[in-house]
Amino acid sequence: MSELLLKYLPEKAIPLVKEILTEHPIYIKIVNNRRTKHGDFKRFSNGNFQITLNNNLNKFQFLLTLIHEIAHFITYKKYQNSKPHGLEWKQNFQHLMLPFLQPSIFPENILPHLANYLKNPKASTGSDVNLTYALKQYDEMSGKNFIFELAHGSIFKFNNKNYKKGSIRRTCFECVELQSKKTYLFNKNAEVLYLKNDNE
């Protein structure tokens, strides 16, 4: 395991990660932040494998993403044609994560949400609002909010456009882009820059 990888991990998790990577060695590359994903697993045409992880993740999100991607690697080696986030991946991910579910590794405000998420893990931790919010508390201050934290009618900026927060529709908020007046759906845990409350 590279020395570079060590600085991104919770200290108490390092021996467990080393154990996994000794059994399942794979090239891991740290890359600049990508807006659409925390990490990924790739198989190249020459038969090599690679995991990439964003360099801006806090230690707990980084660890969770790393194990998520290693589970893809192990699942591919065993089954090859299984669905990317199918039953085989879920079982491997759960098996790998179980030893990490301890308060010496994850803070106690994350553990119950992480345990609940792992009962039926999805393609992205972002699908679990409670877990996402708990993990977010350990990010460096970005000045941004989750959209669900904003009051109805709040004006916010997202991708250099201004929107007004509207009503919730199932798991998303209807928001109006102020210039075009078009309505867009935002996931509850979308990160946005709060500007003001239009109702004030």
Rank of each mutant, 00 (worst) to 15 (best):
L87A: 09
M141E: 15
F146I: 06
F100P: 01
K90A: 07
Y117M: 10
G86F: 09
L111Y: 02
D128V: 11
N145G: 02
N92T: 11
Q102G: 03
M141A: 15
F173K: 03
P107K: 03
F148H: 12
E108R: 04
A151R: 07
Q91G: 05
F106W: 00
F158H: 10
V129A: 13
F156W: 02
S124V: 06
H85R: 01
S167L: 05
G86L: 07
F156C: 02
H85Q: 01
G166E: 06
L135K: 08
K165T: 01
L135I: 14
E108N: 10
Q91I: 14
H152I: 07
N159T: 04
W89T: 05
R170E: 01
W89K: 03
K119R: 15
P107H: 03
S124E: 07
H113A: 08
H95L: 13
Q91C: 09
L135M: 14
L101S: 05
K164S: 04
P99Y: 11
E149T: 00
C172D: 10
A151H: 08
Y163S: 00
A115S: 12
T171Y: 14
L118Y: 05
N130C: 08
K122L: 05
T171N: 15
N160E: 10
P103V: 03
L101W: 12
K164T: 09
L118C: 07
Q102P: 01
Q94L: 14
A115N: 07
L114T: 03
H85Y: 02
G143H: 07
H95W: 10
K119W: 07
S142M: 10
N92L: 06
Y133H: 15
S142H: 09
I105P: 00
F146M: 13
G86S: 04
W89V: 05
L150Q: 01
L87Q: 11
F148T: 05
K144N: 13
V129D: 13
K161E: 05
N159F: 03
D139P: 08
F156M: 02
N92Y: 11
L101V: 11
I168E: 04
P112S: 07
I168W: 00
R170W: 03
K144F: 07
L135P: 13
L131H: 04
S154E: 02
G153A: 07
K90V: 02
Q102C: 08
F100M: 12
N160V: 02
Y133A: 15
A151E: 14
F146W: 08
F93P: 04
K122P: 00
W89L: 06
Q137H: 10
E88A: 11
E108C: 06
L111T: 01
S124R: 09
F173E: 05
P99K: 12
S154I: 02
L150C: 01
T125P: 03
G126K: 12
K157A: 04
Y163V: 01
K90P: 01
A123N: 09
N130E: 14
E108L: 09
A134G: 12
N145A: 09
H152E: 04
S142W: 09
I110A: 08
E140Y: 12
A115C: 08
Q137E: 15
F148I: 09
I110Y: 06
Q137N: 11
L150N: 01
R170Y: 03
R170K: 14
E149D: 05
N120Q: 13
F93C: 09
E149P: 00
C172I: 07
P112V: 07
Q137M: 13
G166C: 03
T171F: 13
T132K: 04
M97R: 11
L135S: 12
D128A: 15
I110R: 06
E88P: 04
P99R: 10
